[in-house]
Design a protein around this nucleic acid. Structure first.
Lengths: 333, 333
DNA sequence: ACGCTTTACGTAAACGTTTACGTTGAATGA
DNA sequence: TCATTCAACGTAAACGTTTACGTAAAGCGT
């Protein structure tokens, strides 16, 4: 149905090689033929077939993105960064998500391999050994965003969760808080959970504050886990003046539950979140939070990846700086 | 580098045809050859090349998704629905966004055409004539999600914004509100803006309430436009008891500004949003809003599309039901 | 034993490009 | 004038599959 370069060649009375040259602006033809070929191409409604092109060029100009299936605004920003950057470089992105807690990761990797993506970005998924093996054996350049592994051959780009959590808690301490809770982190998540808890505990210790395990409520970064944590705090009648949350959404859960119980933020309780996602400035009061530069992370990760693809260089793992965004959810005592 | 079926054929001592048959489970070989081929394939680390496959099959098992570049949680849910459904049917999704207010739409369409996607989903983008022409001339089945055009040949799936807005305002009226403002909608947006405003005005009229144009604050569905609207209402000293917002984020903007000015929700002002996006239940108080079933919209739209692709049938435009999700941001007078 | 069907393959063309290499004719230089 | 260069093409192979078609052998019924 669709016209091919053969059709153009026939109609224009030239060879397919010349058509290809004209279409790709490679030179080696005179103006007349160029015009004729272009005219015929337009007349036939020619549209090049990237698949055929990919086949002979052994490169698809495509990058794959694999992400978890949870929808937080978190991923939207990263994706946007990735897509913007890849678009600027003439790449397309093919997207898949890896199921809840990465259950579909192997299928996803396989799919990306079969599609022959030129590069691969994996966002925020904790990779088990089998997955890492599958990933590396694909022999496709890749970068991990907002996650990492304990192996050296898996380059990543992420913020230092430990340091970021430490900074957040230190900020609370600097505002004279001494009884500080923690909520929303999953201690079994070695990527984003444990380091944030560790940053929290270490900051306390370094300032001579005893860590009270009852003040740490585990969760899964969700709004609901924030709500649950706050309810638990209330049951415990925990004497906190502040709570550090492992995500903005969990912080919102805390605030929401406080609202229901007439606890004022930050008058009665100070809250700091994590992510600086879109909800953080829409909350009441606006949330003080640790910023991960999501959009830029997407852009930069994608950029590094494309560099690696095009120049066959290795990607260096990199820690990107966090930043404390002070809004109005923390009170100085 | 990577092994091909030719390599397998050579090593296993069979023809490429047989390899292809085994790999695709087409039958026509005995158990021995099957085992041998599979063994060799595994040994060589064979991975099929979807590109080559697509070339001869004239189908890429791929669907393209084009969306605006704004990141609201809105799109996350739709995408997830699309990706889930397409995954279940063995399709991959290739994603691009069309730039702010669709500026990149023509490039996006062209890209999708060159990639030979089997189907195309366009989310929430207002299409101008040139774009519609480009779209239809692609000759690829497509469906519009949460948008539409004034032409009959562009099937869509969306909620009836007019009816949904009407229902929301009627709900406020049923709760004895009589002075009701409207915020966040762009009257120049014929898809999502104008119909919501129209639903609002018509509901008022139908219940004998005069429409006061000063009570309608235009916006762009954003949090900021909600804030701006509320500030404007305050300057006007508008005597409203309720306000209907064209988006949840705009509603949050209203609420946020009210909070700053000590105006209680819903005690002093009732608010209803639109979308039932994730932020709606995280707000304080939880937001009463008109639900668009985003995830399901993604799923169903994708499903219809794949039906059309596989059975070469036409897609019928469809209006999907909205629903009023009552939470706690409206007070009965 | 004969014809027929079935099974299990192999052969080779086709998909739509790119590209190394060859060819032609004209222009150039001495 | 003749060798050389160069611009402007054309030829054909290659990319990795799928698949229509052919074929040889085996099985089967009578």
């Amino acid at each position: 149905m669709a016209a091919t370069i053969k059709d153009i060649a026939r109609v224009a009375g030239v060879s397919t090689a010349t058509v290809s040259r004209v279409i790709n602006n490679l030179g080696g033809y005179n103006e007349e033929t160029e015009k004729k070929v272009n005219a015929v191409a337009k007349a036939l409604g020619y549209r090049k077939n990237e698949n055929a092109r990919s086949l002979v060029q052994k490169s698809t100009n495509t990058i794959g993105v694999i992400m978890p299936d949870v929808t937080t605004s978190f991923y939207g920003d990263i994706i946007r960064g990735i897509e913007d950057m890849s678009y600027e470089h003439g790449y397309s992105v093919i997207l898949t998500h890896a199921g809840s807690s990465g259950s579909r990761i192997l299928e996803s990797l396989n799919l990306m391999g079969e599609r022959r993506v030129d590069g691969l970005i994996i966002v925020s998924i904790e990779l088990h050994d089998a997955a890492i093996d599958a990933l590396t054996s694909l022999d496709i350049p890749f970068i991990l965003l907002s996650t990492m592994t304990n192996r050296a051959d898996t380059p990543y780009l992420k913020v230092d969760d430990y340091a970021a959590a430490y900074a957040a808690v230190e900020y609370l301490i600097a505002n004279n808080h001494r009884v500080i809770g923690m909520a929303g982190a999953n201690p079994n998540d070695p990527i984003s959970g444990a380091p944030r808890i560790l940053g929290y505990t270490q900051a306390l210790r370094d300032h001579g504050i005893k860590v009270d395990l009852n003040l740490i409520k585990a969760g899964d970064f969700s709004f609901e886990s924030g709500q649950a944590a706050m309810k638990s705090f209330l049951e415990d009648q925990a004497p906190m003046t502040a709570v550090f949350c492992a995500s903005d959404e969990a912080a919102l859960g805390i605030i929401s539950t406080c609202f229901e119980h007439g606890i004022g933020i930050p008058t009665d309780l100070s809250v700091v979140g994590y992510d600086n996602s879109k909800v953080s400035y829409m909350s009441i009061p606006p949330l003080t939070t640790v910023a991960q530069p999501l959009y830029d992370m997407g852009r930069e990760g994608c950029s590094e990846l494309m560099d690696a693809v095009q120049h066959k260089i290795k990607i260096e793992s990199k820690v990107i700086p966090h930043e404390l965004v002070v809004r109005k959810s923390v009170r100085s005592l």
